[in-house]
Simulated assay, not measured.
Amino acid sequence: MMNNLFSIFDPSTNLLNLPINWTSTFIGLMFIPYSFWLIPNRHFKLWNFISYKLHNEFKTLLGPKSFNGSTFIFISLFFFILFNNFLGLFPYIFTSTSHLNMSLSLSLTLWLSFMIFGWFNNAQHMFIHMIPQGTPNILMPFMVLIETISNIIRPMTLAVRLTANMIAGHLLLTLLSSTDNNMVSYLLIMLIIAQILLLILESAVSIIQSYVITILSTLYSSEVN
């Protein structure tokens, strides 16, 4: 029996004093069969189709000045977050993306990389980006302050967006599943139908959130070129 609602997000489960919950991050590798790299099967074609579509979209967002192969970073990020989001929908599998430890590590690493590259290579462009075109002279100091704050909080907003969306749906499913089992049969049927619909919604949220995080990361990267 759970001590509280948030115990499903508790990463302290261990076996022989070894934390095993975080190993769920690597379970996504099991979705790739050994024949994936050798035989062009349906799995391989589907993977290539999705990767090709993402590559074209990210290439457009990054612009013509982007480095060749830079889209593969964001494609890998998309699949990594997608696998972890989906794995959290299975029973007794820890949702690593529901923790700020995971999401903030990803977003902060990307953001720092973009900032270091931008300020060392395109410092003038970074200064210009702080003042929107057509800003009156009297408002320029305030705009610089606002743009600086909005830039600094970007990794936190990315991390909180992913974490909050993953936690919200899981908590709702947990609340519904912990209701009294002695309820009337027709209410129980309605409860099961509601949980199935919520599970479908959570599957869609898993895809949408991984796509949103990747798109925002791509847009932040395009600003430093």
Score class of each variant (00 low, 15 high):
I50P: 03
S51C: 12
S51R: 11
S51G: 07
S51N: 10
S51K: 11
S51V: 09
Y52K: 06
K53W: 07
K53G: 08
K53Y: 08
L54A: 03
L54E: 03
L54P: 04
L54N: 04
H55C: 03
H55M: 08
N56H: 11
N56W: 07
N56I: 12
N56C: 11
N56T: 10
E57L: 12
F58N: 03
F58I: 13
K59G: 13
K59S: 13
L61C: 08
L61G: 07
L61Q: 09
L61A: 07
L61R: 10
L62R: 05
L62Q: 05
G63H: 02
G63N: 03
P64A: 15
P64D: 14
P64H: 14
P64C: 15
K65S: 15
K65Q: 15
S66V: 11
S66P: 05
S66D: 08
S66W: 03
F67H: 15
F67Q: 14
N68M: 14
G69L: 07
G69C: 10
G69M: 05
S70R: 12
S70P: 07
S70W: 06
S70V: 15
T71D: 01
T71C: 05
T71I: 04
T71A: 05
T71M: 01
F72R: 13
I73Q: 10
I73S: 13
I73C: 11
I73W: 06
I73D: 10
I75R: 08
S76H: 12
S76R: 13
S76Y: 14
S76C: 11
S76V: 10
S76A: 14
S76Q: 10
L77H: 02
L77Q: 02
L77E: 04
L77R: 00
F78I: 04
F78C: 00
F78G: 02
F78K: 04
F79L: 08
F79V: 09
F80D: 10
F80S: 13
F80M: 12
I81T: 06
L82M: 02
L82I: 03
F83N: 04
F83M: 05
F83W: 06
F83K: 03
F83D: 02
N84T: 14
N84E: 07
N84Y: 01
N85Y: 02
N85V: 02
F86G: 02
F86E: 03
L87Q: 00
G88K: 03
